[in-house]
């Protein structure tokens, strides 16, 4: 019985956890394109200008991270947590942003062009001068969000009122 539980736990771990090799790469290089960082705990890290293009960051914890101009283009960020993060000028082009928590995140000049945004929490965040293009924002929340000079290009549905 113990053996079965152990095997099941091992399988669950293999299914859910990030690649330890990829996390090591991120810590050494500061970049991790195409990496598997799902469920990784990156909270409080300095990820300034890091490259996460095409990476899997679903369920990753990026609470309180500093990630100025980080590139999350085409990354899967489903259920990721960016609470209180400073992600000024970050790129989310063509990224999957489902159920992402951006509460109190500072995303000045962030670029969300062509991102698949669904049920995201942007409450109390700062989206000043951020760019939205071809996004559906109807299912996301923007309570108390700074929308100062936020740019809405073509194809944006559900522009928040502030």
């Amino acid at each position: 019985m113990k053996k079965i539980v152990y095997i099941l736990m091992l399988c669950a771990n293999l299914l859910l956890a990030f690649s330890a090799k990829d996390l090591k790469l991120l810590k050494e290089d500061g970049d991790c394109p195409k990496c598997d960082l799902s469920y990784a705990n990156l909270s409080g890290m300095d990820l300034t200008m890091s490259d996460f293009t095409d990476a899997n960051l679903s369920h990753a914890d990026l609470t309180n991270t500093l990630a100025h101009k980080a590139d999350f283009s085409r990354a899967d960020l489903s259920y990721a947590i960016f609470e209180k993060s400073n992600i000024k000028g970050a790129k989310f082009n063509d990224a999957t942003l489902k159920n992402v928590n951006f509460f109190e995140a500072r995303i000045w000049k962030g670029d969300f062009s062509n991102a698949n945004i669904d049920k995201c929490n942007f409450d109390e965040s700062a989206l000043g001068s951020a760019i939205f293009k071809n996004n559906n924002l109807t299912n996301s929340t923007f309570k108390g969000t700074i929308l100062y000079k936020t740019i809405y290009k073509k194809g944006v549905v559900g522009i928040p009122k502030n």
Partner: peptide, 9 residues
């Protein structure tokens, strides 16, 4: 923009 937000708002 963040600086201008502070000054303007």
């Amino acid at each position: 923009p963040e600086c201008n937000y502070m000054k303007d708002i």
